[in-house]
Design a protein around this nucleic acid. Structure first.
Length: 145
DNA sequence: CGGATTTGACCAGCGC
DNA sequence: GCGCTGGTCAAATCCG
């Protein structure tokens, strides 16, 4: 609600790792590789039993972890900012809120409000660094030529 | 007025 | 078989 576009008051308050702030008020902001995306989870999400560290996951740790089975365009971006919804040039309509046990913070679901865009965005706060925001993009824009 | 946002409830898949 | 989580949709409401 209060977050609409980079709120110069909030976003500016906490420096920005990536100065992708267009002081020009430009609209189209391509964050293809502008954001510092850590090759994090870009595979399948199954760690449902990731509740903390009890599950006692295999002591081996991950075992290879060569999950190259990519199903869809899933990209996870970890950005350091106060506002989770950064204006990337598209309109996002919030369509759901859910509470994740892994984090005392709720997960927000956004969808492209464009007419021919079926892109979905998932925004969640980091558990170790509440100042970090995990933005997961799903799909690719369609209303763009 | 329109568009956007919010909360709740529902559904599905999978796990044990 | 049941429970649980995650995810989505719907309606209602509010704001600009």
């Amino acid at each position: 609600m209060s977050d609409f576009r980079n709120n110069p008051t909030a976003a500016e308050g906490t420096d920005d790792d990536e100065r992708y702030l267009y002081g020009d008020g430009s609209t189209a902001l391509e964050l293809s590789e502008l954001l510092k995306f850590d090759e994090w989870v870009e595979t399948e999400d199954h760690p449902r039993s990731f509740a903390g560290v009890s599950t006692g996951s295999s002591s081996t740790g991950e075992g290879a972890g060569s999950r190259s089975a990519l199903a869809k365009e899933r990209v996870a971006f970890k950005t350091k900012s106060e506002v989770e919804v950064l204006d990337d040039g598209y309109k996002w309509r919030k369509y759901g809120k859910k509470m994740v046990k892994n984090s005392p913070n709720p997960r927000n679901y956004y969808k492209c409000s464009t007419e021919r865009c079926s892109v979905k965005k998932r925004v969640e706060r980091d558990r170790d660094d509440p100042s970090y925001v995990i933005t997961t993009y799903e799909g690719v824009h369609n209303h763009q030529t």
